[in-house]
C-alpha cells in the first residue's frame, strides 16, 4: 500500500513548483496568474529542444527557466501597459506560449528517453532501496525544493522582497511610499513563472518526454493543491509568505498522493476526476468543520 505514497510524493514534489508559482502570484501579488498553464509547457519545450540538439543539461535548464520568466513578465507587461484585465492578460500569454512552444519544438511531442537527466545522478540510491521506493529521486527533489524555498524566502525578506510584498498587498500604500508598483508586479510574475517553467523541466525529465498538452489542467490542479495546503497547514504560527510557500508544497504533495491512491484503486476513466474532486472536498470540509464557520457564512 506504500507504492502510491511513493508515486504521489514524487509527482507532488515535481508539481510543487507550479503550485508555488500560482500561490505566490495569487496570495502575495494578488494576481490570479493563468500564465502558469503556458509557462510550464514552454519550459519543457525549450529544455527538450535545447537538450536534444546538443546543449548540456544545465545550460538547457537555465534557458528553459528563463523562458518561463519571459512569459510571466509579458503577462505583467500586458496587464500594466495596456490596462488589460489580469485574466485576459494571462489567457493571451497562454495562447502565445502555445504557438511558440509548438514552433520551438517543431512537433507536438519530443521524446527524451535517451537523454540525460538530473535523476541519473541519484539512480544508484534508487536501486539501493527496494524497487518500489525511489529514495534517490525523492531526496533530490526535496533538496531542490529546500534550496528553492530558502532562496525565495530569503529574497522576500530583503528590501526588494519587502517592496514586492507591499506592492502586491496594498498597491496604493506602496505608491504613496514611492515604490514602483508596475515594475514589482512584472518582476514578481517573471520570478513565479520561472518556478512554473522549472516544474515543466523536471516533469519532462522525469516522464521522458515533453508534450504540447502538458500544461492542460495544471491550473486547476494547482488551485486544488493550493486550497488543500492552506486548509491543512495551521496559519497562526507562520509569517504569511512562509505560510503561502509551505502550504503550496504541502498541498501539492497531499493532492498528488490522493490522486495516486485513486489511480491505485483502478477507477474508471470517468470516475477519476470525480474521485479527486470528492477528496479535495473532503479535506476542505474537514478543516472548515473544525473551524465551524462553514454555514456561518452561508447564513448571512
Amino acid at each position: 500500500m506504500l507504492v502510491p505514497l511513493d508515486i504521489g510524493l514524487i509527482m507532488g514534489l515535481l508539481l510543487a513548483w507550479a503550485v508555488m508559482a500560482l500561490a505566490l502570484a495569487f496570495r502575495l501579488l494578488d494576481f490570479p496568474d493563468l500564465t502558469v498553464e503556458g509557462s510550464l509547457p514552454l519550459g519543457a519545450a525549450v529544455f527538450a529542444i535545447l537538450h536534444k540538439s546538443g546543449a548540456s543539461m544545465p545550460v538547457a535548464m537555465v534557458y528553459a527557466i528563463l523562458s518561463g520568466g519571459v512569459a510571466g513578465a509579458l503577462t505583467g507587461f500586458i496587464h500594466i501597459r495596456f490596462k488589460l484585465n489580469k485574466f485576459l492578460a494571462g489567457i493571451i500569454v497562454v495562447a502565445i506560449t502555445y504557438s511558440l512552444s509548438l514552433r520551438i519544438m517543431g512537433a507536438s511531442n519530443i521524446g527524451l528517453l535517451q537523454a540525460t537527466s538530473v535523476f541519473d545522478f541519484v539512480e544508484p540510491l534508487n536501486t539501493a532501496f527496494p524497487e518500489s521506493f525511489h529514495f534517490g529521486t525523492i531526496v533530490l527533489l526535496v533538496a531542490f525544493l529546500i534550496l528553492g524555498s530558502f532562496l525565495i524566502l530569503y529574497g522576500l525578506s530583503t528590501r526588494y522582497g519587502i517592496r514586492l510584498r507591499v506592492a502586491g498587498s496594498n498597491p496604493d500604500y506602496a505608491k504613496a511610499l514611492g515604490i514602483n508598483v508596475p515594475m514589482n508586479v512584472i518582476a514578481g510574475l517573471a520570478i513565479t513563472n520561472c518556478l512554473a517553467a522549472f516544474s515543466g523541466v523536471l516533469l519532462s525529465m522525469h516522464q521522458g518526454f515533453a508534450d504540447i498538452s502538458m500544461g492542460q489542467g495544471v491550473l486547476i490542479l494547482a488551485l486544488a493543491a493550493m486550497t488543500i495546503g492552506e486548509r491543512l497547514l495551521p496559519e497562526k504560527h507562520l509569517p504569511f509568505h512562509v505560510f503561502v510557500l509551505c502550504a503550496a508544497i504541502l498541498g501539492s504533495i497531499a493532492y498528488q498522493v490522493l490522486v495516486a491512491y485513486a489511480v491505485r484503486a483502478g477507477l474508471a476513466a470517468t470516475d477519476l476526476k470525480l474521485a479527486t474532486a470528492i477528496m479535495v472536498l473532503l479535506v476542505v470540509a474537514f478543516r472548515v468543520s473544525r473551524n465551524g464557520d462553514l454555514l456561518a457564512e452561508a447564513h448571512q
Partner: peptide, 18 residues
Amino acid sequence: ILRNANGQMQVVPSIANE
C-alpha cells in the same frame, strides 16, 4: 489491469509508475 489517464497529462507518469 486497465488504466486510463482520462486525458489528464499530469496523471500519465503516475499511471506508468503504478
